[in-house]
Nucleic acid binder design. Structure first.
Length: 553
RNA sequence: GCGCCAGUAGCUCAGUAGGAUAGAGCAACGGCCUUCUAAGCCGUAGGCCGGAGGUUCAAGUCCUCCCUGGCGCGCCA
């Protein structure tokens, strides 16, 4: 039974008796202040002004019609005309049955209505290892996909692999130059535009072990492209391994090169031409993105005949829609936000609604060590990789930090802080709550407490404020997830879990669960049931964040 | 110059479709382990929600202007 629906149904019935209908702007929601009850509604406030009635009078009239319901302790009219609903403990006990019944799917819903959603995330150029900023995108994208799946969306995750073009050519060139250097054929520093990282030397060495000196004799163009292919394959393998290690697996690795093979780009051009959205000017082919709110029109094919990155991207998104996805979510580094207007324009030019593409901009991450920013640049080869960070602080800690921040706010990732096992890093706080509950159960079994069939145990004895508060929190879990899904905000889940863990720790310190007295068996069993429910929700929540729920710490 | 994002306690951040007296954690100070894990708990203190107008019964939240910081503004990718 759902508290919000339950209260809203009561209210709606009362409104019906007054020949009124539920106004759009009216809400039923848990109030911030405990004194304002379990649920509060502004319905009377919203309706009163248009009816020319006093909000408090209307509220009182509704209150009289509702009072006396089975699960209702009382209803109060408060403040300017709010209706505050106080539910009986018995109502909150019901949530535990739901938790036991649904187990690891407690919290799941069909709110998404089976909508087909494609979540594209990371999609870093395979020209170097993933760094910490990609890690943030990976955590957000992966967790968001899990949450959307859990809330009734049909989700596919995808990584767009830029496997052609200038950057890959540069990768090949960089590897070849290092290879020549390795074999004593050159000593000059690499050109500035080349990738300077140490990993390029590793790739060159590996290539030499595989192919010997064969590449020295080959034509430069051939050698370069062989280097590029080799580097691409290796980097992609490494990226895939790093992401797997990080717990973020993509369903599809979509190759940019595939777009040209099937002439998807040409088809997209034709589509836009038919709608008079492209034109030739100064020898280039332009897309009239300014018709859809972009600052200016954008080039699709340059005057030298080369296609732009954007051209491929339009075709790529057209292809996403053609593959049947109803909604696209792109997790981008915030440094790409200037790209958003043209992409939005493209979506509308493709005949889709603006809401069909949702861009989630993830701000970049500053790495901090000993109070100092660690400067990073892929090109210059100065960076700390995602794998390094995970080795140093652990993936659970790293993911939780990423997922504890609103994605569009800047994040200073303090390595020393994240390693600290305290409330500075809430991941341990939440995991500890779970481990503590497991530990209580272990002890309970050791001491032969009745831990069986908790799902049918009577719960009347759960009546302390802390206990009801915990039950209310469990009750809120499904709603919270739907909110996180709607606003694409996995961090809501992190905060929820931290608060739930906090409420539990506090409860744990105040109330003993394993009570020795024989006449308290029922209370003990009820509390064990409560703990079991909390553990389940912690598990479900942590799993959606991609963070482990350890049984002991 | 234009655009996007941010600005909330000393610090790091929440604030969920506008709701009632703005919340956590850290740091500070004072307490709690013979008893289910002290990676924990309890208490004290801390605020002109960047500033100014506006909309509303109601604004941290919506609109306009301004200030500060980050990022982006190419026939680059």
């Amino acid at each position: 039974m759902h508290a919000k629906n339950y209260v809203q149904d009561l209210l709606q019935e009362a409104l019906g008796q007054e020949d009124l209908t539920w106004p759009d702007k009216a809400t039923v929601e848990p109030p911030r202040e405990e004194e304002h009850g379990d649920m509060a509604s502004n319905a009377a406030l919203v309706l009163a002004s248009s009816l020319g009635r006093k909000p408090r009078d209307l509220a009182e009239s509704l209150r009289e019609k509702i009072a006396g319901d089975k699960y209702l302790e009382r209803v109060e009219v408060a403040g300017p005309g709010f209706l505050n609903f106080f539910l009986k403990p018995g109502f909150w006990h019901l949530v535990l049955s739901d938790v036991f019944e649904q187990g690891e799917s407690f919290g799941a819903s069909d709110a998404g209505g089976g909508e087909h959603v494609l979540v594209e995330y990371v999609s870093a150029n395979p020209t170097g290892p993933l760094h910490i900023g990609h890690g943030r995108g990976a955590a957000v994208g992966d967790s968001l996909a899990r949450i959307l799946r859990f809330t009734g969306h049909e989700v596919t995750t995808e990584y767009y692999v830029n496997d052609s073009g200038r950057q890959i050519q540069l990768l090949g060139q960089s590897i070849l130059l290092r290879y020549q250097e390795l074999l004593g054929q050159r000593t000059d520093p690499l050109p500035r535009e080349c990738y300077q990282g140490e990993y390029i030397r590793d790739l060159a060495r590996e290539l030499w072990e595989l192919r010997g000196e064969a590449l020295l004799d080959a034509k430069e163009e051939t050698a370069e492209s062989q280097c590029a292919n080799f580097g691409l394959r290796r980097m992609l393998e490494q990226i895939q391994a790093d992401l797997r290690e990080f717990g973020a697996g993509h369903d599809i690795w979509y190759r940019e090169s595939g777009l040209t093979h099937g002439d998807k780009i040409g088809q997209t051009f034709d589509y836009l031409k038919e709608r008079n959205l492209v034109y030739e000017s100064d020898g280039a082919l332009w897309f009239a993105s300014s018709q859809y709110g972009d600052d200016k029109d954008r080039v699709l094919r340059k005057s030298d005949g080369e296609l732009t990155y954007f051209a491929a991207d339009v075709a790529y998104h057209a292809d996403k829609f053609q593959r049947g996805y109803e909604r696209l979510i792109n997790v981008w580094g915030a440094d790409h936000h200037g790209y958003a207007p043209r992409m939005n324009a493209a979506v509308r030019a493709l005949g889709r609604s603006q809401e069909d593409l949702r861009l989630l901009l993830v701000q970049l991450v500053n790495l901090v060590r000993q109070g100092q920013y660690v400067s990073m640049s892929t090109r210059a080869g100065e960076f700390v990789t995602l794998a390094d960070v995970c080795n140093e602080v652990g993936t659970d800690a790293a993911r939780f930090i990423f997922l504890s921040h609103k994605s569009d706010s800047h994040l200073d990732f303090d390595l020393d802080l994240v390693k600290k096992q305290s409330m500075d890093n809430p991941v341990y706080y939440v995991q500890y709550a779970h481990a503590r509950i497991c530990s209580v159960f272990k002890k309970a079994r050791d001491r032969d407490y009745p831990v069986q069939e908790l799902e049918t145990t009577p719960l009347q004895s759960l009546e302390a404020n802390e206990e009801l508060d915990l039950l209310r929190r469990l009750h809120r879990f499904p709603d919270m997830l739907q909110g996180a899904a709607r606003t694409l905000s996995p961090h809501h889940l992190s905060f929820y879990l931290r608060d739930l863990a906090g409420a539990f720790h506090s409860y744990y310190n105040k109330y003993p669960v394993l009570i020795p007295e024989k006449d308290k068996t029922e209370l003990c069993r009820a509390r064990l049931a409560l703990l079991s429910g909390i553990a389940q929700v912690l598990q479900n929540g942590l799993s959606l964040l991609g963070v482990r729920a350890p049984e002991m710490m």
